[in-house]
Design a binder for these strands. Structure first.
Length: 864
RNA sequence: GGGCGCGUAGCUCAGUGGGAGAGCGCUCGCCUCACACGCGAGAGGUCGCUGGUUCGAACCCAGCCGCGCCCACCA
């Protein structure tokens, strides 16, 4: 009769995650493992900052994968006895959240202008109160050991002060400045966005060739454009300086049709003589390349399209107020009337679009705030060179990161939004004031713009710990240890945290950056809600359990992108169940002893101890080097095949005996070791089983989550035991295969004689696992039907009623043919003189050994 | 235009110089007192193609063919 604590084991032949997970989570919570006190130093502590999810978001597969990875890191650190803080919080996600709330308002038939800025922002906070905890609860379902009690938000008061302080600091250093410059204008959102928020999409446009008459009256010059409406803002025509067709025209003047402006013909090497006519209309106000050329040549900058997407007063009166599209049609119509459109052709090319709204970017000259990045980028490259910051995997991400920093450009940081960190900038007449607090005196007007969300995200690892104040949390946990994310935000976020971290805290914000797979939909497309290709991690947790999802995600992900594969999750579910059942076998049978590898009494005991010790070293190394899929799959394989399929089967007879202390101690040790190693991957089921272990030791067993991480050593490695059991396993498999091949009845015992060396103490195992009756070598009992080769010899099969002897003969000829083929292969290889001479001696020796083995086996087979 | 990655068993993927691996699926046999989310035994790949280096190549080099991603101011 099992003790009370084991009733659940006895009753359940299946592991039921739903019955366990919330209870186990509550135990962790109550024990306070999530929330460390801010003590000690960053060197002795471990910290990792979660990439803050969108405050209104919900858990998607990427969160689930990265959550599993970070939780694994945190749990290993915690088991190593480190004070571990996994910094938690959410991001205000300016553009995304503002859009969301605007949409909700629109459904009520309201525009944000009706509420006014303050009213609108209050609505957003209200929204956050309603939806802000969704993802937090979902992280809990995953088992994430985040520090929930110390949750941060990028719009917290102190966080806002930190952001403003950084702005002021960089402004005073001269790195932040305000300028009229070409920006990516998102007409959908009505704001400027940064280069990184722009994506290229292939579109089909019409390429118009337009003739611009020369002032001299001696003909015209033809330019090509896909945006005829911007011609109204042309201020020059450019040709390549080496283009002889046009060299005599350089310095001449053309007349801009419809407008009449005089356009100088200039030379610039940017112009490709091969493209179109080789002449380029220059529109500094509406094209980034033209803008550069314009500044270089000191050209006038005319803006005919405004931020509202309509034609401005700078355009001829008849076009003013038109949408750009309308203006295009009108311009083309007029040009055709004047006979100036000399050609049109369909033209497919890549055009910048807003990543956020999906709208085509309108390049505009706009008064915006910028941050010069050169001085910040230099030290951020340096820390990678000197190894203070390491990417995992190192290639290609180190180079990707470095290349981007080498070519970094000014960052447009102002956004024409309401939701976010409003710029700490005030104007009065011609005065500008920049400060954390509002200026004294009357008449100051605050800049209405807010900062790019990534500006505040860039402070995440230290602002969450209280920076710029010298807080205990900052002293204990900064710099952090690991940062884990997908590659898509290496530039947007990772690089900026490094730059800001070094600039503001004089330290790298983390020492290791893990870049994980992007999980695609099963069909290979991007997983996304809008495509309908998303999959809900919560649903998978409901179906298979959190441990299963964690295992599946970790096992399927590596450095490469990977298609989501629910089979891997099921594999995790099966593993949890197998763990549960192996534990049933062990815990319901063992006597009340302490786990003890030193109790190993037999060769198979020493074997499993040795194997688990090796596994410990391997898994530790894989965890530490961020190779989580290998670690997960190695654990799976070792547990399933070595511990369950072999050791538990070998140990059963002794376990069933009354006097089973020794094997109990080894079994408990093996189970305990397995649970420790697997806990970072599958925390729930391992913790549950841990709680059912006998309380043989002094005092409380405590939580697995805070149990010691095992350290692998040499002392328990036993190569001899490993080799012996290896042979046993081979022998068992050979005999089982024989049984199968001759169609022996599953339950019947086959009689045979063991004629082989090296099975001292293993004979009983061999007989039992293979279902053979093994007689002594000298037992003379009937004709030998066949000899099954096993390492060190063979087993002579004797007649019995377990199978039909005719099957045996068929099988023997097949085996003979196979051995002949193997011998030929080996002989061929060894007859190659170059192989024998040049290959390493041990390789050649191994080949010779195999050849001898095959010959020996054939000899025995043919001997009967 | 520049850069990076991928193409290995029916499917999803490991595997960076010494005789091809995992999970699922498939075949055969088993409800064997932990587990049928299980047990045992199997079948199944000219490692995209073509050359090269090497005693030896899925692995290194070159070219080619198919996918995919990132960066980039050719209208």
């Amino acid at each position: 009769m099992a003790p009370d604590r084991l009733k659940v084991l006895e009753a359940r032949t299946r592991y039921e995650p739903a019955d366990v997970e919330s209870r186990i989570f509550a135990r962790w919570w109550d024990a306070g493992i999530f929330h460390p006190e801010p003590e000690g130093t960053p060197e002795e502590n471990f910290s990792i900052a979660v990439p803050p999810p969108n405050v209104t978001g919900s858990l998607h597969m990427g969160h689930a994968l990265n959550g599993s990875i970070q939780d694994l890191c945190a749990r290993v650190a915690r088991m190593r006895g480190k004070r571990t803080k996994w910094i938690y919080g959410t991001d205000h996600a300016g553009i995304a959240v503002q859009r969301l709330v605007e949409k909700a308002l629109a459904e009520e038939g309201k525009a944000k202008e009706e509420l006014g800025r303050d009213g609108f922002i209050e609505r957003v906070w209200e929204w956050r109160r309603q939806h802000g905890s969704t993802i937090t609860e979902q992280f809990k379902r995953l088992g994430a050991s985040l520090d929930y009690e110390d949750e941060r938000f990028t719009m917290d008061d102190d966080y806002q002060r930190a952001v403003a302080g950084v702005f002021v600091h960089l402004y005073e250093k001269g790195l932040i400045y305000r300028d009229y410059y070409m920006v990516n204008w998102d007409p959908g959102l009505g704001t400027a966005i940064s280069d990184l928020e722009v994506e290229q999409r292939t579109v089909e446009d019409t390429l118009y060739s337009i003739d611009y008459p020369l002032e001299s009256g001696s003909g015209s010059i033809t330019v090509a454009t896909v945006r005829p409406e911007t011609m109204l803002a042309d201020t020059a025509i450019a040709v390549n300086p080496d283009d002889e067709r046009y060299s005599r025209l350089v310095g001449e003047t053309a007349i801009l049709p419809l407008v009449g402006r005089r356009l100088p013909v200039i030379a610039d090497e940017h112009v490709d003589p091969e493209f179109g006519t080789g002449a380029l209309k220059i529109t500094p106000g509406h094209d980034p390349a033209d803008f550069e050329i314009g500044r270089k040549h000191g050209l006038e900058e005319v803006s005919v399209i405004g931020e509202d997407g309509r034609m401005t007063d700078a355009a001829p009166e008849r076009f003013r107020g038109m949408e750009a599209d309308e203006a295009r049609a009108a311009v083309v119509a007029e040009l055709r009337d004047e006979g100036l459109v000399s050609a049109t052709e369909a033209y497919v090319h890549d055009v910048p679009h807003s990543h956020r709204s999906g709208r085509r970017i309108e390049p505009l000259i706009s008064l915006q705030w910028f941050c010069d990045m050169n001085d910040l980028a230099r030290p951020a490259m340096e820390v990678v060179r000197d190894g203070r910051l390491r990417f995992h995997p190192e290639r290609p991400w180190t180079d990707v990161y470095t290349n981007w920093l080498e070519n970094i450009r000014p960052w447009c940081i102002s956004r024409q939004l309401w939701w976010g960190h409003q710029l700490p900038v005030w104007y009065r007449g011609g005065e500008t004031y920049v400060g954390v607090e509002a200026p004294e005196g009357d008449g100051w007007e605050r800049d209405p713009d807010v900062l790019d969300t990534w500006f505040s995200s860039g402070l995440w690892p230290f602002a969450t710990l209280g920076w710029p104040e010298d807080t205990p949390a900052l002293r204990a946990f900064y710099p952090t240890d690991v940062l884990s994310t997908a590659r898509d935000i290496i530039f947007l976020w990772v690089a900026r945290m490094v730059m800001f971290g070094i600039e503001l805290t004089d330290d790298v914000p983390f020492s290791d950056v893990n870049i994980h797979s992007v999980i695609q939909a099963p069909d290979g497309r991007r997983m996304s809600k809008s495509l309908g290709t998303g999959m809900d991690p919560l649903e998978l947790i409901d179906r298979h359990g959190a441990d299963a999802l964690r295992f599946g995600l970790l096992a399927m992900s590596s450095a490469q992108d990977v298609r989501f594969n629910e089979e891997r999750v099921k594999q995790g579910r099966d593993l949890a169940n197998k763990l549960w059942n192996a534990s049933r076998l062990i815990l319901l049978r063992v006597s009340d002893v302490e786990p003890d590898a030193g109790a190993a009494a037999t060769v198979e005991d020493r074997w499993i101890v040795s194997r688990l010790e090796r596994l410990t070293g391997r898994v530790t190394e894989l965890y530490d080097s961020f190779r989580f899929s290998h670690a997960s799959l190695d654990l799976y394989g070792a547990f399933w095949s070595e511990l369950c399929d072999w050791y538990l089967e070998l140990a059963k007879p002794r376990l069933y005996e009354q006097d089973n202390e020794a094997v109990s101690a080894v079994l408990l040790w093996a189970l305990e070791r397995t649970l420790r190693l697997l806990h970072p991957v599958m925390p729930f089921v391992t913790e549950e089983i841990w709680s059912l272990m006998p309380e043989a030791r002094e005092g409380e067993r405590g939580l697995l989550a805070t149990a010691d991480w095992p350290v692998a050593g040499e002392a328990l490695i036993d190569e001899r035991a490993e080799a012996e059991v290896e042979r046993l396993m081979e022998a068992v498999t050979s005999l089982r295969r024989y049984r199968d091949e001759v169609s022996a009845k599953p339950s019947a015992i086959v009689r045979g004689r063991l004629v082989a060396d090296g099975y001292e103490g293993l004979r009983e195992h061999l007989a039992r696992l293979a279902r053979f009756e093994l007689l002594d070598e000298d037992a003379s009992d009937g004709d030998v039907l066949a000899t099954v080769p096993i390492p060190g010899g063979g087993v002579q099969v004797l007649p019995s009623d377990a199978f039909d002897p005719a099957e045996a003969e068929r099988r023997r000829s097949a085996r003979r043919a196979q051995l002949v083929a193997e011998i030929e292969r080996a002989e061929h290889k060894l007859s190659n003189e170059q192989f024998v001479e040049r290959a390493p001696a041990e390789v050649v020796a191994e080949e010779r050994r195999k050849l001898e083995e095959y010959r020996e086996a054939l000899r025995r087979l043919g001997a009967e």
